[in-house]
Structures are given as structure tokens and as C-alpha cells.
Write a protein that binds this DNA or RNA. Structure first.
Length: 479
DNA sequence: GTCTAGTCGTCAT
DNA sequence: CGACTAGAC
């Protein structure tokens, strides 16, 4: 569910752009969204276990769109589920099973189109399908990673460290994870709405001027997020107003206790405060995979207190050892079971290969590089696009793309999950009263990391003429 | 104006 | 996943 209403509220500071703006840059893609859309047209086949390559074709079409524009895609997949989200996951699964059953009944009674409808409702992206796509990506020389847990955190990490210039996604959590640039709602022509962190202060409906990263995150969590439902009667607008006025969660909760409009008991708020801290830490210190060192890291490093402070950090999931992480995150092992995949191509991957192999009379697609005509963004308007991409599959000329480890360096002994040693709390959530009038000002100057891809451009929105210095906020530390 | 819970659509012919 | 909306405060 992401942050309810956030994207809608941030529309006014977004800018319509084409993905070709990222020419010669790396861009990370939230692959789940593309896979899910690609599954709809072959929902019936997938539900019945009939091999199909349509979902792979859908994703590869978009990958080739990017490569046509010399944009270098880095595909990111979801990994394991967090314990906190387990409930919703299982409810979704029950729902899907119900829909499949209904579809099968309709199919048996000869009602094909209605059955199709229920198959589409039952669409589910399985690890096997993801694996089939990964095999194809590997074959096509496209870089990809599997996140240890949430893809959102991984995507934000890649963008925040400068490994990529932007993220393509549909998920509002990218804002909570503070990805500096996100392209939302990208269509098959590459057109979408880009939301930049540095532009949030110019937003109309919800004004984030003078908001620190922590305040933005506080707003997001209070509005209701995947890890914590909002307080009754408080959603995005109210959360934003409260954070603007009182800055810290400690103060906000004290105010809410006194506010007669709401009838929160101290017990309510104490319980909420504890869950809030957990959600804050989950966003903040989420496990990610660092492609440069090929190790597990925290999105923002945990405060180092030499392990003195006790605390339950299991909600972050379990920290894989390095060997396991490399296997899982580079796509050689199942992210749930850590079981190594067979190197044998899946039926779907084979099917895709046999289809795509036909496009140039059996030639290796990698040898047909400049076949695609160069066309400008302006031409990409509305039509006559599709013809290009059946041919265009030049391997991304990725100067910085690390060679995908094809070796078995990733083979490893897989250890049983073990909880990570706890560290200090990053946010003291006082349930006891404290000074709340003039709260400390968290310095904004922590954001010093220079953006790797720095460029200037002039852009006009309906409301502003802005000279935009395109800097990424980098990694903000705010513990 | 604000919040909530529910329904619908994502593809592509 | 989000978008959209009817209905309650």
C-alpha cells in the first residue's frame, strides 16, 4: 500500500519527462511492477502452469526501450519478506487462490472471458518467474540484483550512493526511503513523471519546506505505511501538519494526548511510539546489497555502540552472511530458501529465447547493434514506436557495469538464519513529558555527499520557472 | 476539508 | 501496487 495518498499529493512538484533524459546514465528499475503488468496478458497460462514468455517479452520490450535511448538499466528484484509484512502477504495469497478457483470453475463451464477476468485478478509474480526473467537478463547482458528484502530500499540505496542516477518505480515508498530522483508512471514510450527530493520544498498541496529527512520520514510513517497503520483519524494531511508544527514524534504524541478532538489514551500512544520507532528503524536501516563491495549493508549505517545496548532488531530480517548474500542478490539462489537454482534454462526463458532468436534469422542479437534507427524524443510522441524495439537489443554499452559473475564464486554453504546483534537505538522515544516548545533543529547540513551525475538544466513547470541545480541529497545521517 | 474502506485497473486486441 | 470514489465526521 505504500504511503497512502503521497504520490497524489506530490504531483505538483513532479515534472513530466521522457526516460531519454537519462541518456548515458544508469537507472535502477523496480522490476516487480513491470513483471506484474506483463503477467496480466498471460494470466491464464501462468495460473495453469502453461509455459509462456509474454511477461518476459513485456519486460524486455521496456528494457530495450531504455537501451535504445542509451539508458543503462539495472533491474532490481524483491527478495525475502519482512516478518512485519507477513500477515498481508498471506491474506493476498488466500485471495489469489480463491480467484484461481473461481476462474477454473468458469473455464470448465465454458465461460472463457469471465474466467480470464478472474485469472487476471489472481496474477502473482512467483520467484520462478523472476528467475526466468533473470536468466534472460543475464543472457542479454543486463545488470540486475535481488534485494535482500524490499526492492524499494535497494533501489533507494543504489540511487543514494550514486550507483544509479535515478529509479523507475510506481511505489511511493521510494520517497520514504529518500531516493533522490524517481520516475513514476513510465509508459511504453518512456514518458513519466519525475519526482525529485530536492524539489519537494516547492510542492503545492503539501509543503515540505524546511523539512529534514527525518521529518519527511515521520510524516510518511504517521500517514500509514506498510510497517505501521496510521492512528485513527490521522492520515497524510494531518500527519504533515503535525510534523510541520511540532517536528518530532515525541512532541506530536504529547500534543495528541492533550488534544480533546482525539481520544487517545496514554497506553495507545505508548504502544504506538514503540511501533513507530520500529517502523522508523526499518525504513532507516533496511538491509541492502552493495554491488561495489558485494556485501550486505544497512541503507543508513546503524549507530555504532559496540553492541552494548540490548534491543530486538529482528524486524530488519536476518543478516545473511556474505557468501549467501552474493548467491541470493546476484540471482543464483532462491531468496526464500537460499537454495541454488539450476543453471538449466526454465521453460519460459527457453521460450523467450526461441522467439527472440527469430528476429534476425537466428543471428546473435548482440551482433546487430546499430540496427535500430536513432529517433528523437519528439518522435516518440504517441505512435510508430513499437517497430523499433523488436530489433533493438544492443547490449548496453555499460562502461561501469561490472561483469556479471558467471563463475561459481557464489556457491557457498548456507547458514541458518541468526539474529543480528543489536545496537543502539537511534531515536529516543520519550513517553515521559519533555521540553517541546522549541525543539532542537536537526542540521540539514549533513547532506554533503556530492551527486555523481551533476548537470544543470532549465525547466518550466506550470507554476515555476526554475533553474534547477540537479544535485542529489546523498546519504543523510540523522541519528 | 479530511479520512476511510471499498472497488477497479494494470495488458492489448 | 495506485487511482478513484462514495460516504461519514
Amino acid at each position: 500500500m505504500g504511503i497512502q495518498g503521497l504520490l497524489q499529493a506530490l504531483k505538483s512538484s513532479g515534472q513530466p519527462i521522457n526516460v531519454s533524459e537519462y541518456k548515458n546514465q544508469k537507472v535502477a528499475i523496480d522490476t516487480y511492477g513491470w513483471l506484474h503488468k506483463g503477467c496480466i496478458q498471460c494470466a491464464a497460462e501462468l495460473a495453469q502452469g502453461i509455459p509462456t514468455a509474454k511477461y518476459i517479452q513485456f519486460v524486455m520490450h521496456r528494457v530495450n526501450l531504455l537501451r535504445h535511448f542509451k539508458v543503462i538499466p539495472v533491474m532490481v528484484f524483491d527478495g525475502g519478506f519482512l516478518p512485519m509484512k507477513k500477515e498481508t502477504e498471506e491474506e493476498r495469497r488466500r485471495n489469489r487462490e480463491h480467484n484461481v478457483q473461481k476462474a477454473m470453475e468458469l473455464l470448465r463451464s465454458g465461460n472463457r472471458s469471465q474466467a480470464e477476468d478472474f485469472f487476471q485478478r489472481a496474477v502473482d509474480v512467483t520467484p520462478l518467474m523472476a528467475h526466468s526473467l533473470m536468466q534472460t537478463l543475464r543472457e542479454e547482458g543486463v545488470e540486475f540484483f535481488v534485494a535482500p528484502y524490499e526492492a524499494d530500499a535497494q533501489l533507494a540505496y543504489l540511487a543514494r550512493t550514486g550507483y544509479v542516477s535515478a529509479v523507475i518505480s510506481e511505489d511511493s515508498d521510494l520517497i520514504a526511503y529518500q531516493s533522490p530522483r524517481v520516475l513514476y508512471k513510465m509508459d511504453k514510450f518512456g514518458n513519466g513523471l519525475e519526482i525529485q527530493m530536492v524539489r519537494l520544498p516547492m510542492n503545492k498541496d503539501l509543503n515540505f519546506n524546511h523539512f529534514t529527512p527525518t521529518m519527511i520520514l515521520t510524516t510518511c510513517i504517521m500517514a500509514g505505511c506498510d510497517y505501521l497503520p496510521g492512528l485513527p483519524g490521522i492520515a497524510l494531511k494531518t500527519a504533515h501538519r503535525l510534523v510541520k508544527q511540532y517536528r518530532s514524534i515525541e512532541c506530536i504524541l504529547q500534543i495528541l494526548l492533550a488534544e480533546s478532538k482525539y481520544s487517545f489514551t496514554p497506553q495507545d500512544l505508548v504502544a504506538y511510539a514503540s511501533k513507530f520507532q520500529q517502523a522508523m528503524r526499518t525504513f532507516h536501516h533496511h538491509y541492502v546489497y552493495d554491488p561495489t563491495t558485494r556485501t550486505i549493508q544497512n541503507l543508513t549505517p546503524c549507530p555504532d555502540t559496540e553492541g552494548h545496548v540490548e534491543g530486538d532488531w529482528d524486524f530488519l530480517g536476518h543478516r545473511m552472511d556474505t557468501a549467501t548474500a552474493r548467491s541470493v542478490c546476484e540471482g543464483y539462489a532462491n531468496p526464500y530458501t537460499y537454495e541454488l537454482y539450476s543453471t538449466e534454462p526454465t521453460a519460459d526463458a527457453r521460450l523467450y529465447r526461441s522467439h527472440s532468436g527469430r528476429r534476425l534469422s537466428g543471428q546473435d542479437p548482440r551482433e546487430s547493434v546499430a540496427a535500430a534507427p536513432l529517433n528523437s524524443v519528439e518522435l516518440m510522441g504517441q505512435r510508430k514506436v513499437t517497430s523499433f524495439f523488436s530489433l533493438a537489443a544492443p547490449p548496453a554499452v555499460a562502461p561501469a557495469a561490472p561483469a556479471l559473475p558467471q563463475s561459481q564464486a557464489t556457491r557457498a554453504e548456507f547458514k541458518a538464519p541468526r539474529p543480528k546483534s543489536p545496537e543502539a537505538g537511534d531515536l529516543a522515544l520519550a513517553t515521559a513529558p519533555g521540553p517541546c516548545g522549541a525543539k532542537r533543529l536537526i542540521s540539514d547540513a549533513a547532506d554533503a555527499e556530492p551527486a555523481p551525475a551533476k548537470r544543470k538544466r532549465v525547466r518550466l513547470s506550470r507554476y515555476f520557472a526554475v533553474l534547477q541545480d540537479d544535485t542529489s541529497p546523498g546519504n543523510a545521517e540523522f541519528d
